[in-house]
Design a protein around this nucleic acid. Structure first.
Lengths: 201, 201
DNA sequence: AATTGAATAAACCGTTTCGGTCGATATTAT
DNA sequence: ATAATATCGACCGAAACGGTTTATTCAATT
């Protein structure tokens, strides 16, 4: 893994993308190092030279992708719920312009059943549970909501909706991304208009 | 394959569903007979006893699923474009209640690149090209459309839209299906209202 | 009751692919 | 020139592959 961090960033990205798209598409067991090496245009030996083992590669990808996501999320912080959701979506979309399969990969991790990585994934989920779900709603100004709205529910709806939307469409160029940002912005506004008290619009 | 047709229909369906969902999820090469046998609750030998070979199984599924689809389509015939689309969607949805992965499987066939089945798929595509695309628009009363509408384009849009919609949602029970039929009906009506001359609404 | 034939599972077979290593070579840095 | 690193093709034992054979069960027929 130290070997990996030494090579040019562009090459790193190619290998990461080959790996996460393969793992996302076929799961841990059905993905072979050969698949990844071939699609990355390097030899099988190099993958082992970079990461040591298949399992180490998988866990590196898990840690790395999850870091990329949470890093992007944490640097801007608003007390407004929908503002925060918008920022999160923008982060995801800009991430996808470099790592198209990153969200598919991260969500595929949650269906992974292979015993060779099961325990590590369980630990990973535990470690990140507090990060994502709890902190996501910390410091939110809930007085802006209509009194009968369950914010946790709104959060869940938005979570599933944006995840589905972002995973569906394959990204070809950066104008696709700008289009998606706009479209998602409109959807978020719609919800905001219906869940916030009128005085906050 | 004659062996297969002799066993109870319920068992046939279980095996077919195990096979098409495996092939749809992982493609020809990455799907093993063991995967299918395990998920169908039978032994590996039985799959060979029923179908002879992996390739024969795959081609049988291709033929069978495509037959199920076209059979359902052909028995009702309207000259109204949107009526025909609606019938097609209903057929697909009711098929999915017995074979949840059938559409995913059939569309996965079109991305299949494995050389062992490549030629047969090419022939299949050729054989069904005339069936689906050309006949689908035969006998349509195009005078109902506004003069500047390209019917082939409308057909394509609806094709991709419904396929995407039907493939996205996993079916749990039959009330899900009724809900989806309604929702799709509304979408089709919306397009009808905008593409037909006002005198035909 | 004995015989037959299909249904099924388990063990097995040769081959391929797997994760992973190693040695040789090319490239780079010193 | 030399040491260190990057890279690859060949290779390894083990596992999984598609497919076969064998053994057993079980129902129908005689």
């Amino acid at each position: 893994m130290n070997n990996f961090k030494r090579i040019p960033e562009e090459k790193q990205k190619i290998i990461i993308n080959s790996a996460i798209s393969a793992f996302a598409a076929n799961g841990y067991r059905k993905t072979s190092i050969n698949d990844i090496a071939l699609s990355a245009g390097i030899s099988k030996s190099m993958v082992f030279h970079y990461f040591g083992s298949k399992k180490a590669l998988y866990l590196f990808l898990l840690e790395h992708c999850s870091y990329l996501l949470s890093e992007g999320m944490s640097d801007t912080w608003s007390s407004d719920f929908f503002e925060r959701v918008k920022i999160a979506t923008d982060v995801k979309l800009s991430l996808m312009s470099t790592y198209p399969s990153i969200l598919l990969f991260l969500s595929s991790v949650y269906c992974e059943r292979d015993k060779k990585v099961k325990n590590e994934i369980k630990e990973f989920k535990l470690k990140n549970k507090t990060l994502s779900s709890q902190i996501a709603l910390k410091g939110i100004d809930d007085s802006k909501f209509k009194p009968d709205i369950d914010i946790n529910l709104v959060f869940k709806i938005l979570l599933y909706f944006t995840e589905g939307y972002l995973s569906k469409i394959p990204i070809k160029n950066n104008s696709d991304i700008r289009l998606m940002i706009n479209e998602l912005g409109e959807c978020i506004d719609l919800l905001k208009n219906n869940f916030y008290k009128e005085s906050f619009l």
